[in-house]
């Protein structure tokens, strides 16, 4: 399979001087188009840091980072923001929806923010995505009126709105009961299978890792697998 994301010799440090902490120590990994990979590692091993860098939310201290053959380390903030909007989706552990918005408004946000206005086309795609994640009857519900599992499914729909090549999921089921977690994982697997969207899922849960085609482990700041 073709490489979607490549990072080589990735280094990320926090702090300065005597308090400097090296989280990533020359990490190298490649994500291929259409694969669904689990990212494993102990707490503090650098999983979230790697996801932040891959999501262009954070810059590495050193190393190479390419996605779709674009060098992310030389792009300016505005270019990274635009790239992230078009090519990367996020699903966070705590859903991170906009609380004053409805489910539909949250889903179409990534597209509306790109064009500066909402259109009927966007709304229709948002409805379709919500229907796909099983929330056709919750379209106009405000976030506080949704259950935890429903919020996470809205987050999945939002991550897919701009048809990104890569979705980064940070403990997407970590805050859900087992039934809701199973539903969300089933949904992710289905989208990966049907749309060929690449998923990188950070998790502590071995059952989730087993559902992925590949397991990448981070230990001592480097990746294996």
């Amino acid at each position: 399979m073709t490489a979607l994301v490549e990072v080589r010799g990735l280094v990320k440090t926090f702090g300065e001087g005597e308090t400097v902490t090296r989280v990533l120590k020359g990490l190298t990994v490649t994500l291929r188009v259409g694969e669904m990979a689990a990212l494993l590692g102990a707490s503090g091993s650098g999983k979230s840091t790697l996801l932040s860098i891959l999501g262009t939310l954070m810059r590495p201290t050193a190393g190479e980072h390419l996605m779709l053959d674009v060098d992310m380390t030389v792009a300016d903030d505005a270019a990274l923001t635009a790239f992230r909007n078009r090519h990367i989706g996020f699903v966070f552990q705590f859903h991170n929806l906009l609380p004053d918005f409805t489910a539909l408004e949250n889903v179409i946000f990534p597209t509306a923010v790109q064009t500066g206005r909402e259109t009927d086309g966007m709304r229709q795609r948002g409805r379709d995505l919500l229907a796909r994640v099983g929330l056709a009857d919750r379209i106009d519900f405000r976030v506080p009126n949704l259950s935890g599992g429903q919020k996470q499914r809205v987050a999945v729909a939002r991550a897919l709105m701009n048809q990104p090549e890569l979705v980064l999921a940070d403990e997407p089921t970590g805050n859900l009961d087992s039934a809701a977690a199973a539903q969300v994982m089933e949904l992710i697997a289905e989208i990966n299978r049907d749309a060929g969207t690449t998923f990188l899922i950070s998790t502590h849960d071995s059952r989730i890792a087993e559902r992925c085609q590949r397991q990448i482990s981070i230990r001592d700041g480097v990746a294996t697998g």
């Binding site: 923001t81 078009r86 996020f90 991170n96 946000f109 990534p110």
Partner: peptide, 11 residues
């Protein structure tokens, strides 16, 4: 604001 920025909202 962090969520918006993560979703691709520019500064």
């Amino acid at each position: 604001i962090g969520i918006m920025r993560a979703m691709g909202a520019s500064q």
